[in-house]
Nucleic acid binder design. Structure first.
Length: 569
RNA sequence: CGGGGUGUGGCUCAGUUUGGCUAGAGCGCUGCGUUCGGGACGCAGAGGCCGCCGGUUCAAAUCCGGCCACCCCGACCA
């Protein structure tokens, strides 16, 4: 990409933190003039920010092409008909941006492209001879997020690379999946990121296997459990071994009499807990859901969360019941369900082990505005299945090696899904194999949040002055500070010379030196070259490394050699 | 969607409680001059339908009602 002169380049830096920004990357992206907000969750990328996006894009492109990916460009605007075929027009929910044309035909702005790409391949690939194929694109994605947050980190319009693999058999599909995972590891390394790969939930996309690539950061929105042995998973679905520490000292001898108490309008655990003055860990949450075996109740301790994936592994496909269904089954509105007296009303009662250890607990009474206190396992209720149903917690052990797991927060920058036949089946993506039989293609899909990588990189690498870019995705390699007009001629020739090899930003503005230094640190290019007093006095250039903060003096004649030593491009 | 908060020049904010003169500050912007190594200084300027609509009043940024936008917390948690 081209070098630029600051005086002619659109970089509106800000001295103060914008009030809407909370986390470092959001503040710094706005302050450094990378992005501006147009509306909630919708951002414009200014030249500086777009350069970073393009750098990341090119890294991804190179690595995708390496595994024989073929770049294409699909449409952001998609007809409803396609989404009806996969069933997702109804399933996707309010997150899907929907609109109509003048004929009142339904469309959506694509949040992802499984339908489009599958229908494309379905209509034009018919033979095993054309498989496998890996297609990818860079595209704006639209999701009407429930709460846009943290700048481009969780935006309603964002730039993404998405790839889709089509194979003729499972073996090939697994190979494609592995190829993409390998490419992802290369991509994130190339971007200079620390990251970990973890097992993940498949959510709205579906499929059988899935991994997320996470950049560890305190400001991340996901929680991950990981182990030094290499196991890692989103806590949404992490499995675990419980440590052998029964934390209840009470025994059945301490059991008190069951009581029904009036709890008018108190529905949540928190509300009832403070109303009755009992700790949430004494509560039993009764989650009503539908399974392939019929309606089920899952019991979770008040301060724990249901792990859908663990539950699904014991109960098959499960879906939480709606308000109406809860009333129908328990006789009370949501918030007042409880295990006592539920037998017979649901097909299965499943309890997390921690629930069965609660002595003199609290649960709903299956009657509006009433809860039961001093409820005890086996005396007052029983479960058909007792096992692990909650999400992982600090203290839990690695399911692979048994060592304590580490819990941290992370930013999801990439996600891979092994889809199998989910979309090829519904969209009719079939091919004829060598034996002449028609079969569904086996698919995988692979996403990378391009704009989110920029934010994650900043989250991971900044100081109080500004951004510290990894060389590979920095908007410019070198930032020359021309301290005063008296050295402008020299700076121009230095700029021309270095631009042959590097991308250079020359700060030739007629501003005071302080402003230029501050802006250089804020923008965060890896190398800052100062042409000022040391040059007019001793004929030396100062080379400042943004990462280490160290400054070295060098002769102008040796500058290129010096740069080769400290920056690798 | 529930709760809380904020909307005043490009940015950050004061003024609103207790209505009253021409609506303020710092930064930024323009011009001139002095400066020129870590967000300089002087002088002179430009820039605001105080979020929008309606109401109360002699008088509204300020009080009342409605709406909108933005931010924070929460949200299949039974």
């Amino acid at each position: 990409m081209k070098s630029a002169r600051f005086s002619k380049y659109f970089i509106p830096t800000l001295r103060e933190d914008p009030k809407e920004a909370e986390i470092p990357s959001h503040k710094l992206m706005i302050r450094s003039g990378m992005i501006r907000k147009l509306a909630s969750g919708i951002y414009e990328f200014l030249p500086l920010g777009w350069r970073v996006v393009k750098k990341i894009e090119n890294i991804i492109r190179r690595r995708m092409d390496e595994i024989d990916g073929q770049e294409l460009f699909m449409s952001a605007l998609q007809p409803r008909e396609l989404w009806d075929r996969s069933g997702r027009w109804d399933l996707y929910g309010p997150e899907l941006f929907r609109l109509q044309d003048r004929q009142e035909r339904d469309f959506c702005l694509g949040p992802t492209h499984e339908e489009v790409v599958t229908s494309l391949v379905a209509s034009d690939i018919k033979s095993y001879k054309s498989l496998p194929v890996l297609l990818y694109q860079f595209q704006m994605k639209f999701r009407d997020e429930i709460r846009p947050r943290f700048g481009v980190m969780r935006a309603r319009e964002f730039y993404m690379k998405d790839a889709y693999s089509f194979d003729s058999d499972e073996e090939g599909c697994l190979k494609s999946y592995r190829d993409n995972v390998v490419a992802y590891i290369r991509i994130f390394k190339d971007c200079g990121l620390n990251f970990i790969k973890v097992e993940a939930a498949t959510g709205n996309i579906g499929g059988s296997s899935s991994h997320e690539f996470m950049v560890p950061a305190g400001t991340g929105e996901d929680e991950i459990a990981c182990c030094s042995c290499g196991y890692g998973a989103n806590t949404e679905l992490s499995s675990y071994a419980r440590p052998e520490t029964p934390d209840e000292k009470e025994t059945s001898a301490d059991e008190k009499n069951l009581e029904k108490v009036n709890t008018p309008g108190k529905k949540t655990v928190e509300e009832v807990a403070s109303f009755l003055n009992r700790k949430p860990e004494k509560f039993i949450k009764t989650l009503i859901c539908e399974t392939s075996e019929g309606p089920a109740a899952i019991l979770i301790r008040g301060d724990h969360e249901l792990n859908l994936s663990l539950a699904a592994s014991r109960l098959g496909n499960i879906e939480l019941a709606g308000e109406e269904r809860v009333k129908e089954l328990t006789g009370a509105s949501a918030g007042f369900a409880g295990p006592s007296g539920l037998k017979g009303k649901v097909s299965i009662i499943a309890a997390d082990r921690a629930v069965t250890e609660i002595k003199n607990g609290v649960s709903g009474a299956n009657e509006n505005d009433f809860h039961l206190v001093n409820i005890n396992y086996s005396r007052d209720y029983e479960a058909d299945i007792v096992g692990d149903f909650r999400t992982a917690l600090p203290g839990d052990l690695c399911p692979v090696c048994g060592k304590p797991m580490e819990f941290k927060r992370g930013i999801e920058i990439g996600h891979t899904f092994l889809l199998g036949e989910k979309y090829s089946e519904s969209m009719g993506a079939t091919f004829t194999d060598a034996g002449g039989t028609e079969k569904n293609m086996m698919m995988g899909c692979y996403g990378i949040g391009v704009t989110r990588i920029a934010a994650a990189a900043i989250e991971q690498s900044h100081d109080k002055e500004g951004i510290i870019w990894p060389v590979s995705i920095a908007p410019f390699h070198l930032h020359i500070i021309q301290i005063s007009d008296s050295v402008s001629e020299f700076c121009s020739s230095l700029f021309e010379k270095l631009s042959e090899k590097y991308e250079v930003l020359l700060d030739d503005r007629r501003e005071s030196p302080g402003i230029k230094f501050k802006d250089a640190l804020l923008i965060g290019c890896p190398i800052i070259i100062v042409v000022g007093k040391k040059f007019t006095g001793e004929g030396k250039l100062e080379i400042q490394c943004r990462h280490t903060g160290r400054t070295e003096l060098t002769d102008p004649d040796n500058i290129e050699e010096k740069l080769r030593e400290i920056i690798e491009i």
